[in-house]
């Protein structure tokens, strides 16, 4: 057991099975499905509300999740707590295995573009903008659709997941080409 806790990499099948079982637990005992991307809407709305409260109150999409001024819904709820706890969860896993991992510019990115920190930060930022825009249009992300949704056999989630992999593979080959695979 101690060996397993200290082992830096677990079998992907073990991790997948454990994520499946984690879904059983959240469905059966919490009445919830694993998800993350709605939290980005709540967080963005809560931040924007401190600058432009009127604007956020009048936005139908924000009020769907944050409620109205008369009847506010909690910003920090189940999924928000989940998303925040991902950081210490991953940190603990890295610490227990005594891994020392620091990454500012991934090797593959540096090979294709440059080792510049600024360049990669802009790239990561832009990727994040596109990612969540797509997730919110589709109504979920890799957790809400591609794990929680597909395991319920949801039509929406299977369509999303097939589209995700199609575009992900096409974009990765468009950016890095066939030789890219030698640098991951």
């Amino acid at each position: 057991m101690t060996d397993l806790l200290r082992s830096p990499r677990w079998s992907p099948y073990l991790v997948g099975a454990a994520l499946g079982i984690l879904s059983w637990i959240t469905f059966a005992t919490m009445g919830k499905a694993l998800g993350t991307s709605t939290t980005m809407v709540r967080a963005a709305g809560a931040i924007e509300r401190t600058i432009a409260p009127e604007h956020v109150d009048q936005n139908a999409y924000f009020s769907k999740y944050l409620g109205t001024r008369e009847k506010p819904k909690p910003v920090i709820e189940w999924q928000f707590a989940l998303v925040l706890a991902l950081i210490p969860g991953a940190w603990l896993a890295a610490r227990l295995s005594r891994e020392r991992f620091r990454e500012t510019v991934p090797a593959l990115w540096a090979w294709r573009f440059s080792g510049s920190t600024g360049g990669r930060m802009v790239g990561a930022f832009v990727g994040g903008v596109i990612l969540i825009f797509g997730a919110r249009l589709a109504g979920g992300c890799t957790s809400g659709h591609s794990i929680s949704g597909t395991l319920q056999l949801a039509l929406s989630s299977w369509v999303f997941t097939i589209a995700l992999f199609t575009a992900g593979i096409a974009t990765a080959f468009a950016i890095y080409g066939r030789k890219g695979g030698d640098h991951v």
Binding site: A138, A163, L164
Partner: peptide, 11 residues
């Protein structure tokens, strides 16, 4: 949404 998401995820 899935197509847009895939582009963002690859970047």
């Amino acid at each position: 949404g899935g197509l847009i998401f895939g582009v963002g995820m690859a970047i």
